[in-house]
Simulated assay, not measured.
Amino acid sequence: MKEEIADAWTNQSFGYSKFVQKGLSKRYEREGWQTIFSEELGTKKLKVLDVGTGPGVVALQLAYLGHDVTGVDNSDGMLKEAIENCKRFKQSIEFQKGDAESLPFPDNSFDAVVSKFALWTIPHPEKALHEWYRVVKPGGKVVYIDGNWYTDLKNSWFRRRWSDLSKLLILITEFRNPYSHGFEDETRLNLWSSHAIRPSADLEMMKEVGFIDITAKEGLKRRVLSGTRLIKHGYWKDYFLVSGVKRKIDSDL
């Protein structure tokens, strides 16, 4: 299943990278994400790992904020786009191929681990969260953003119609076929996130892994999307953010 998911992301890499480039060119969107990450990570320079970096959007946002960023992804196509975007936006970021469930880094390597729109496609999310916990330093923070991508549409007639109209608008204005993207039905149905109640399920997983100070925040979408970007890509119910801190060995026991 991992190969199918990696191939699906590779097939989407060029179009998704274009979406990212447009977002980075929009001040409202760029500064909205930067503010969200600054609220979670603070303003001190950190060594940060971006898991499921895709075309490098989060890595770039964090690099703009002055952090030392490493991006990892299991899709060759996404990594290619991330490297190109790094050159395009003139940022110094290290990218490498890696599995979110088995990261190629030693224990306690990073001050923080971040991820955006990735955990929903990872076959074994608990295993991934254990890995993110492993590579972050004691007292360090894991922050990830995700959404209820398929359940939102399945449960809402209004959002399905909005989705159809937005795809038609993209087809007309951007001259690309948004209907060709996404996962095959069989793959989608086998994703854990297609059947989970989120972020409640995420909070339980974070607790089981051993994180402390676990929080969930919603209401992110309108902080980062506006105008035509909101019309085209805002049909999902909302984005949510989950964060947790790795327990310090002595003081938190």
Rank of each mutant, 00 (worst) to 15 (best):
L203Q: 09
Q12K: 15
S163V: 01
Y235Q: 02
A8K: 13
D152P: 06
S102D: 13
K237A: 09
R159T: 00
S251T: 14
D250H: 12
K116P: 04
M1K: 11
K154L: 12
L168D: 00
V113G: 05
K22T: 07
E31Y: 09
L79F: 00
D238Q: 06
R188P: 07
V51Y: 06
L103W: 01
Q91T: 14
H130A: 11
Q21D: 13
L203R: 09
F158T: 15
L253N: 14
G140A: 08
R247G: 12
V57T: 10
T173D: 03
L60Q: 04
V113Q: 02
L241K: 13
A63N: 08
A128E: 01
D73Q: 10
A63T: 14
H195S: 14
W9A: 08
W33C: 03
V113L: 04
D250T: 14
H181R: 08
G140T: 11
Q96C: 13
S102Y: 03
K18T: 06
K18A: 03
L253D: 10
M78L: 10
H181I: 03
D111L: 05
G244L: 03
K2M: 12
S163G: 08
S166E: 00
S156V: 10
I197P: 05
T70P: 03
A201N: 12
Y133I: 02
Q21E: 12
L165Y: 03
S243D: 06
E204M: 03
I36W: 08
L65I: 10
K154V: 13
N11G: 13
Q61W: 15
T173H: 04
R247M: 15
T121V: 14
K47Y: 05
L203M: 14
N108R: 06
N190D: 08
D185M: 08
V58Q: 00
L79C: 01
M78P: 11
H233P: 02
R160W: 04
R88L: 14
P138W: 07
E184D: 14
D152N: 13
K80L: 14
A118R: 01
L62T: 07
P55W: 01
W162P: 00
R223I: 15
W9R: 04
H130I: 13
L79R: 00
E4F: 10
P104E: 06
V114I: 10
I145H: 01
I249Q: 09
T121F: 01
K248E: 15
F183S: 06
V224K: 05
A112K: 08
R176S: 02
E3K: 15
E29Y: 01
I172V: 15
V209Y: 01
I93F: 02
S109E: 11
M205I: 13
G42Y: 01
G56H: 03
W192G: 00
V143M: 06
M78Q: 15
Y179M: 07
M1P: 12
G32R: 05
K80Q: 13
Q61M: 11
K246Y: 10
D107E: 06
T43C: 07
G54N: 11
F240Y: 15
T43R: 15
F240I: 11
R159K: 00
R223D: 10
N177Q: 04
Y133S: 03
R159D: 02
F175D: 14
G147I: 09
E186R: 10
G140N: 08
D111K: 02
F240L: 05
I5D: 00
P104Y: 04
L225Q: 04
V136A: 05
T10N: 08
N190R: 08
L253T: 15
H195F: 06
Y150S: 06
L230S: 01
E186N: 08
F175K: 12
